[in-house]
């Protein structure tokens, strides 16, 4: 089955926060899919790291480019 790449633009969200956009994309994803989230909220980086650690999905990349965080996640933990 081909993998999907889901792009999520969460730049500018202060409340409720970019993590809610990641969660939304995760709900609609299946194992093997790639989720790419862009966010400007500084709380996003620690939140993604904690989310990866707890849910057991895979963080392929987390970089910062000119005030924007980009997280690339591979969905692997769904039962």
């Amino acid at each position: 089955m081909p993998e999907n790449r889901l792009k999520v633009d969460a730049r500018g969200i202060a409340c409720p926060g970019p993590i809610t956009e990641l969660v939304k994309a995760y709900r609609n994803a299946k194992n093997g899919d790639i989720i790419e989230v862009m966010a400007t909220d500084p709380g996003f980086k620690p939140d993604v790291e904690a989310w990866i650690k707890r849910t057991g999905n895979q963080l392929l990349e987390l970089r910062e480019e000119g005030g924007t965080y980009v997280a690339v996640i591979k969905v692997t933990a769904k039962k």
């Binding site: 409340c15 926060g17 993590i19 969660v23 995760y26 709380g43 904690a50």
Partner: peptide
């Protein structure tokens, strides 16, 4: 909640 904390925005 699916978030890292009860309210998603940290300061609140």
């Amino acid at each position: 909640v699916p978030y890292p904390r009860p309210y998603p925005a940290e300061p609140m």
